[in-house]
């Protein structure tokens, strides 16, 4: 089932990328990123059948990091929203050079 898993992984990952590209809502973009991370997890799990349990250990790490990322990211979104009353990316251009 490796080939099918990898195909699914690729599809999910690309869907996540497309989501990041077409959305302007910061929260949805965030969710898309989570989808991309999950897709990668599936790769790890699929390969762990052939390469041992280390892949599953990495999934645990990825989950931890994505949890931390979600916590900080959402806190940032809240902070931005508090300042600008919006989370639309087109209105957030503090980095303008």
């Amino acid at each position: 089932m490796l080939a099918e898993s990898l195909a699914l992984t690729a599809a999910l990952f690309v869907i996540g990328v497309i989501g990041v590209l077409i959305h302007r809502n910061a929260i949805i973009i965030f969710m898309c990123v989570e989808l991309m991370l999950t897709a990668v997890n599936l790769t790890f799990v699929a390969f762990s059948r052939f390469y041992g349990t280390a892949g599953q250990v990495f999934v645990v790490f990825v989950m931890t990091v994505s949890a931390a990322e979600a916590a900080v990211g959402l806190a940032i979104i809240i902070a931005i929203f508090r300042h600008r009353q919006t989370i639309d990316l087109k209105d957030i251009n503090l980095l303008k050079g």
Binding site: V20, I29, L89, N93, L94
Partner: peptide, 18 residues
């Protein structure tokens, strides 16, 4: 040119990255 590229729009950055 470089400063024009820095629109500050994160969406554009994501596009460029991808």
């Amino acid at each position: 040119v470089g400063s024009r590229l820095q629109t500050g729009n994160v969406g554009i950055y994501a596009w460029v990255l991808v």
